Each structure stands twice: as C-alpha cells, then as structure tokens.
Simulated scan of single mutants.
Amino acid sequence: MKPVRTVARALLAAVFVRGGLEAYKNPDRFVDGAKAVTDRMGSTLGSAGLPTDPRSLVRLTGIVQMVGGALLATNTATKPAAIALAGSLVPSTMAGQDFWSGSEQPQPGPLLRSDAGTSVLKNLGLMGGLLLAAVDTEGKPGLAWRTGHLTEHAQDSLKRAAETTAKETRRAARTTAKETKRAAHLTAKEAKRAAEGARRGARTAARETKLAMTSATAGGILSS
C-alpha cells in the first residue's frame, strides 16, 4: 500500500504546488478574488494573525501551499503539511469564493452562484483528501489504539501482580502455619520427653532409696 499512498499524496500535492507557485509569482492575478475573502472575513483573519491585505494574503497562502505541497509530495512531515494545506483552504471556502481562478468576477446571477458552489465543493473535496492524509497511519496502529493497548497492558500487569502477591501471601501463610504447627509439635514432644525423664529419674531414685533402706536394715540385723 505504500506506493499507492505515495502516488496519491503526490497527485494531491500537485494541485497546491502549482497553485501556490502561481500565486506567489503573480499575486495581482488573484487579488480580486482574495478581496472578496478579506472583505467578508477581515476581522477573523486579523484575530488569527493573518494578513487582511488581499495581496499579502495571496502570497502567504501561496507560500503555505508550495511548502506544504512539497512536503506532502515527498512524504515528509505529511500530517503537519496536510493540516497546513487544509487550513489554507478555509478562508476561501468559508467565504464561498475561489480566488485561485484568476478570472474577472462576473456579474451576479445563477451562473456565478453555480460556479461559487462548485468551487466550495472542490475545496471541501480537497480538504477531505488532506484530512485523510493527516490521519493516515500507513498501516501502523493509531494513537488511540496504542493508548488503549498500553492501558490494557498496564491493567493486565497490575492484575497479574495482584494475583502473584495474593499467591505469595497464601503460600507464606501456609508456610508459617506449618512451621508454627511443627514448632508446637516439637515443643510438646520435648515437654513429654522431659516429663518422662523426670518420672524415670524419680523411679530410679525411689528404687535406690528402697535398696539403701533394705541394705541398712539387713546390716542392722547382722550386727545384732
């Protein structure tokens, strides 16, 4: 699809490069048409920092269209170039004029209204093509998709981290319970063993005492 995009951008840019060059070289040819725009939108142009003088407006628009067209044709900074070119069409489109025709303004009538409507539709068609060029991602994921994908990935990572933490906590709790049970069991065994040792020692002491008493008694009998 890249060759198709390249050809399409070049064809779209050719309109602006040619028109912009002609406007810059011969601005007086388009002054009458541009005056209709400045007369209707002078305050708007001034507030936007654009020239309200028809000749200056024509030359500035020509420069924008030459540079933007060249960038678009060479696939360089295509998004800013397409946006700039679309913006260059806004004044004449909103004023319902096509000051690139370079022809004398005819007398008002049905034919003039028809020509103006055609010019506006032509500008809108060009703006549509430029907007498509501006949002074209050349087959790569768009910003919205990348943002959503990153958000989803972050949520999955958090979920996995939470599950891992929960598993580790349960494993640690089971290990602690086992160790506690083992320690208690060992303590009980040690206590039992100590008690048995004490009882054994007591029995041994009792036997030794009994033997001592028996020996003493036997010795007394023999001596008498």
Rank of each mutant, 00 (worst) to 15 (best):
R29M: 07
A23N: 09
K35P: 00
G42L: 03
T38F: 06
G46P: 03
G42C: 06
F30L: 11
P51M: 09
L21D: 05
R55S: 02
R59C: 02
T44M: 15
A23E: 03
T38E: 08
A48L: 14
G42H: 02
T52N: 09
K25S: 00
V31T: 09
G46M: 04
G42I: 00
L50I: 09
K25P: 01
K35L: 07
D28F: 03
A23Q: 10
A23R: 09
G33Y: 07
R40I: 04
E22D: 14
F30D: 03
S43Y: 01
D39Q: 12
S56G: 00
P27D: 06
K25H: 07
V58P: 05
S56Y: 01
S47E: 13
F30M: 11
N26D: 10
G46Q: 12
A34H: 07
L50D: 11
L21Q: 08
S47H: 10
N26L: 01
D53M: 04
K35E: 13
L50E: 13
L45K: 04
Y24G: 06
L45T: 01
G33E: 06
E22L: 12
R29E: 08
S56D: 13
L45D: 06
E22M: 07
L57G: 00
S43N: 12
G20W: 05
S56T: 14
P54Y: 10
A34Q: 05
R55E: 04
D53L: 04
G49M: 08
P51L: 10
K25M: 02
